[in-house]
């Protein structure tokens, strides 16, 4: 059952309270982030309908927004999503090699998830870390100045955390 917990609802109310009376739709983007984080890292249509209901807007208004922004996942993704930047400045510093290396190491192509559901590889456009290229986003944080060794270390780290949490 898709429903926010007590603490999530408190956060929801905090988000909505930032906007003028009757403009609760403005909270849609942050609320979708909250929903995505709360319900398994992606937005199912059930989740989106729930958000629409909470914000008292039509479901289509939520779908329109969720499909517009690239950070909302409309399909399940791996536990760890490697979002590797491939735009100009990162390309100049060898991001293509990093993408290829991760793909080779995990035996997946960009856009795919490993069979164990642990990793998703995604190529993305500029994340604003051009001076620290090549880089990727992993969860909330950036991993910068990537090298093959660093990628190895990150993958190991993820595997260890996942094993510890199981």
């Amino acid at each position: 059952m898709t429903k926010f917990s007590e603490t999530q609802l408190t956060e929801f109310n905090r988000l909505v309270a930032r906007y003028p009376e009757g403009k609760q739709k403005s909270a849609l983007l942050p609320v979708l982030h909250l929903a995505q984080d709360s319900f398994g890292g992606w937005l199912s249509s059930e989740t989106m309908d729930y958000v629409a209901e909470l914000l008292r807007i039509a479901p289509i208004e939520v779908y329109e927004v969720a499909t517009f922004y690239s950070m909302y996942n409309l399909k399940p993704v791996g536990k760890y999503m490697f979002e590797v930047c491939q735009t100009g400045p990162c390309m100049l510093r060898g991001s293509d090699d990093i993408v290829a290396y991760i793909g080779e190491k995990l035996s997946i192509k960009p856009g795919e998830t490993t069979a164990d559901g642990l990793f998703t590889l995604k190529t993305v456009e500029c994340l604003g870390a051009c001076g620290y290229a090549p880089m990727m986003q992993l969860g909330k944080h950036y991993r910068e100045h990537l090298t093959k060794e660093k990628v190895d270390a990150i993958i190991d780290e993820c595997r260890k955390t996942a094993a510890a949490n199981n």
Binding site: A58, I60, Y63, T67, F68
Partner: peptide, 8 residues
């Protein structure tokens, strides 16, 4: 409204 513009 039940339909709209999806994706970008």
């Amino acid at each position: 409204r039940e339909h709209g513009i999806l994706d970008r």
